[in-house]
Design a protein around this nucleic acid. Sequence first.
DNA 1: ATGTGTTCCTGTCCGC
DNA 2: TGCGGACAGGAACACA
Length: 283
Amino acid sequence: MPELPEVETVRRGLVPVLEGAVIARADVNRPDLRWPLPDRMADRLTGRRVTALRRRSKYILADLDSGETLLVHLGMSGRMLISGAQVGRFHHDHPAPQKHDHVVLHMASGARITFNDARRFGAMDLMPTDRASDHMLLKGLGPEPFGNDFNGPYLAGRLKGRKTPIKAALLDQGIVAGLGNIYVAETLYRARISPLRLAGDLDEAEAQRLVPLIREVLAEAIEAGGSSLRDFRQANGELGYFSKHFQVYDREGDPCETPGCSGTVTRTVQSGRSSFWCPACQR
DNA sequence: ATGTGTTCCTGTCCGC
DNA sequence: TGCGGACAGGAACACA
């Protein structure tokens, strides 16, 4: 589920309930997700005020007034459910506990935030805020796609000489942070570049052209998530899932949407993961 | 160093 | 309706 736009959507949805708010109690229902949860996590969260809610790549970072930062990763199937809160016009009653409700934050306001993750590829950790960028999961990350450090010359430089397919290079979080399987597919489609091309075989212009397209694809998805946030609140308070019209992702067999192209969207497995693309217009 | 395949876990969907 | 298999949006890890 969650690539950068979905994580950003979740973050924005949590801001009204979490930022500036106090965690009255934390229920930690199992000792681990993908990795063991931090020692005494419930104690370290109890009574803490969240001073800021940030995002780095696909990670949500909640800075606490204790000087620690709570890192949350949604993995493949992690969800956040808000209940007991007045969010805009909508109020959500507390639902019955569900299978895979692993961590529940009870806010002093009466709101509740439930982290549910069936596949348990998600993660949580606590670290000193001033050393967050040294954390195992954060230290190797490349630039944020919307930051100034991510630009044409930078990307061209990183792709140069790489023998891995461009698909894999864009999925590499050390090159650019936040892209996943969906938005890599959508980006390469708009760039009309085949996912099978070797990264190092792209010329300078092609590499540079990817930068604005990555931003465009992500920005549109964030906008779609933002506009659907209201609907999710209305429905059940769940954050992070929204429908978006993809041009190639999960559309195997559909006609290519590029005007004048009579190609068909194709699925190709690359390093064990599906790539969706149009062999007729992506070269 | 770089590139590739495997693995963690559960749920869903599709064909028989 | 049950059953088996493929597949799922991530990313660390082990190995060539």
